[in-house]
Nucleic acid binder design. Structure first.
Lengths: 240, 240
DNA sequence: CGGCAATTTGATATCCATCAATCGGTGTGG
DNA sequence: CCACACCGATTGATGGATATCAAATTGCCG
C-alpha cells in the first residue's frame, strides 16, 4: 500500500496504513469534495493517485490552502468529532476509504501502529511549521522557489526516484491552478504569475505551458528558497 | 500537576504529563535558551510558570516565532533526534525537566497515555493551522486582534477563569516585546506598534504601558479577528 | 474552428517595510 | 534626589512589494 520501498528517504514505514489494504476505493473528479468543513469526522482516507488540497475558508471568501496531499498521504487527521477544514480533489484522484473506528481499533490494539501514527503526526507538524516560516518571513519569489522544490520532492517520492540528480527531476509538473498556489502561498494569482516570470527571466526555470516547468538552475532555486532538501530534518540552509 | 481542573475547557486531561510529577525544576531568566536548534533532543519539558517562545531563525537573521508556550504546555515535540527549532524564555520561567526516555517508556507502557499524547499533538496541529490562516490571509490589524484573543485565552486557562465574561479578562498582560509579537505575526515591530495604536484609536482597546491593554470592545475585537473562541474546535466565526 | 476559462500582462493603489528621530520608562551613579 | 544613559516603544516620512482593477492573450475542450 501507499509508497513502495523508499530507500533512505522515509525510514519507518507507516505500517498503520495497512488498514487501507482491503478498503473500498473511490474516484474523485477535479473539484470534488472529500471532506467538508463542519462535517462529521467518521472516515479516514489514503490517497492512491492524484492530488488533493486542504482548505480553510472564511465567510468573507478568503481561502487558505493549508496543504496539498499526494499519493501515500493520510487524510482525515482531527482531534474533534467534526472537521474544521475541507478537502477537495485538485486532479482526478483515487482514494481508499476506511471508517474511522477501524483506525481507532488498529491504534488501540497495536503499539507499533500507534508509534508510526505518532511519527507521522510529528512529520506533519514539522511540515506545517515550514509553511509558517514561509508565510511569515519569505518574499513572494522565495515562497514560489520553496513551492517548486516541494513539488519536486513529491515527484521524487511518488515516482520513487532514489537519486536526487535523476534527470527526470528537472521537469516539474504543477497539477494545481495559479489560484490554488496563490492561496497556499498567501499571495494573489497575479503575483504568482509574475513570480514565475521573474524566475524565468533570471534563467532559473523554463516554462512550457502553465502546468509544467523545467528547472534550469537547481542550486539557484535552492539558494532562493534557503532550503537544501525537503527530506532532511534541518531544512533551513547554511545554518549557524 | 500543570493546570488544575479546567471545568469544561479541556476535557481529556493530558495524563502523560504525570511524568513531570517528580521531575527536577529549572528556573530560566528572560532570554535564556532551553532548546537550541540542531541540539540533541534528549529531554522534554513542562512549563510550571512563565512564558517561552519557539523560534526558527534563518542565517540571514530572519526569525519566525513559531509559537509562544504557557504554563501547562509540553515542550520538546520532535520526530527526529535533533531539534530544528530553538526555545527561549520570554519571562522568568520555571520548567520541569524529564529525560526523553522516560516519556518514551511511559508511552510504550500506557495506551491511555499514548491516546492523550496523540490528542495533544492533534491540538497542536490545529493551533498551527490557525496560525497559517492568519499569516496567509489576515491583515496586520486582524492578526493583532487574533493575537490579543489568544493571550486572553491563555490568561483564562492559566488563571482558571471558568466564565468567559469574568471582568478580570478585560485586562490582558502582554509579556513579550513588540519584536517578539512582530516575528510571531509575520510583521515588523513598527507595524505592531501602529496596529496597537489603530485599535486604541478605534476604541477597541486601551493601552496602559506597553505590556498591558484593557479590552474596551470585545465583540469588535472578535469581529476583527473573525474568531469566536479559541477553546472551540471551529474557530472561524460566521461559518457558511 | 470557436468560445470560454485560466493565465498573463499592464496600470495604479494600498499596505506594510524601511529609515530616522523622538519619546518614555528604568536603573545607575553622582 | 536628580541627571544621565540606555533600551524598547512610538511616531513620522518615504519607499517598495504585493494587491487590485482592467485588459489582452493563451490554451484547452467541445
Amino acid at each position: 500500500m501507499s509508497t513502495p520501498e523508499l530507500p533512505t528517504l522515509d525510514l519507518p514505514q507507516d505500517i498503520f496504513l495497512d488498514i487501507f489494504d482491503a478498503a473500498p476505493l473511490r474516484d474523485l473528479a477535479p473539484g470534488e469534495v472529500v471532506i467538508s468543513a463542519g462535517g462529521k469526522a467518521d472516515q479516514v482516507f489514503n490517497i492512491v493517485s492524484g492530488v488533493l488540497r486542504v482548505c480553510r475558508t472564511g465567510t468573507d471568501g478568503r481561502r487558505q490552502v493549508l496543504s496539498f496531499l499526494f499519493p501515500g498521504n493520510f487524510v482525515g487527521l482531527t482531534a474533534t468529532e467534526t472537521y474544521f477544514f475541507s478537502v477537495e480533489a485538485v486532479t482526478p484522484t483515487r482514494i481508499a476509504c476506511c471508517p474511522r473506528h477501524v483506525l481507532d481499533a488498529r491504534l488501540a490494539s497495536d503499539p507499533l501502529a500507534v508509534r508510526a501514527f505518532l511519527n507521522m503526526m510529528l512529520r506533519v507538524v514539522e511540515d506545517v511549521l515550514d509553511v509558517v516560516y514561509s508565510l511569515g518571513q519569505r518574499t513572494a519569489r522565495e515562497r514560489l522557489a520553496v513551492f517548486l522544490l516541494y513539488l519536486r520532492h513529491w515527484r521524487r517520492l511518488t515516482q520513487n526516484l532514489a537519486n536526487d540528480r535523476d534527470p527526470r527531476l528537472a521537469d516539474i509538473d504543477i497539477p494545481m491552478s495559479r489560484e490554488d498556489i496563490a492561496d497556499f502561498l498567501g499571495l494573489k494569482k497575479e503575483t504568482v504569475s509574475r513570480s514565475f516570470k521573474e524566475l524565468e527571466t533570471d534563467q532559473v526555470i523554463l516554462r512550457s505551458g502553465s502546468h509544467h516547468v523545467r528547472v534550469l538552475d537547481l542550486s539557484a532555486l535552492r539558494e532562493l528558497a534557503g532550503i537544501r532538501d525537503f527530506a532532511s530534518p534541518r531544512r533551513i540552509a547554511r545554518s549557524p
